[in-house]
């Protein structure tokens, strides 16, 4: 059951990834040499830079994915890697926008913006509802 739910969720998560994902860049918080130590990330969400928020900075401890889940996704190859990155990058923020020091360079390509996490949430809810319905015998093969 859990496996079915996870697979369904992964499938839905994979769908919104556009072919030409934007590139974003993350540097260490408060970075003194942001031009050297930035990391380039693929992103489906265009110019938004949630990396500057507490949640995205600290995704291992506080983020949308637990360490184990992220590790699991990363081990699923490039698709898993892209999914892990996408989920971490689109976590709800709750803090004001990016700092210039933290989000160093952001591509000007447009992505799905706030629509992406909304799609994720709806998809996740649908997958869970489907799984629960199957367990209760409301849905048959």
């Amino acid at each position: 059951m859990r496996k079915t739910t996870t697979l369904a969720l992964l499938l839905v998560l994979a769908m919104p990834l556009p072919a030409g994902a934007a590139v974003r860049v993350v540097a260490p918080p408060g970075n003194a040499e942001a031009d050297q130590y930035y990391q380039t990330l693929p992103s489906p969400t265009g110019p938004r830079a949630p990396d500057a928020t507490k949640k995205a900075r600290d995704a291992v401890r506080d983020g949308a994915l637990t360490e184990a889940t992220e590790q699991g996704l990363r081990q699923r190859g490039p698709t898993g890697l892209a999914l892990a990155t996408a989920v971490a990058q689109t976590a709800p923020t709750g803090e004001p926008g990016p700092s210039p020091a933290f989000a160093v360079r952001i591509s000007d390509e447009q992505g799905l913006g706030y629509l992406f996490p909304l799609i994720l949430a709806v998809a996740a809810a649908a997958a869970i509802a489907f799984a629960v319905a199957r367990r209760r015998g409301l849905v048959t093969r």
């Binding site: 993350v26 540097a27 130590y37 990391q39 380039t40 995704a59 291992v60 401890r61 990155t85």
Partner: peptide, 18 residues
């Protein structure tokens, strides 16, 4: 191994080393 995130979180690219 300077990290842009928390210590347990690795680099996204397999060519990078955090």
């Amino acid at each position: 191994p300077i990290n842009v995130w928390a210590p347990s979180r690795g680099a996204v690219s397999p060519l990078d080393v955090s």
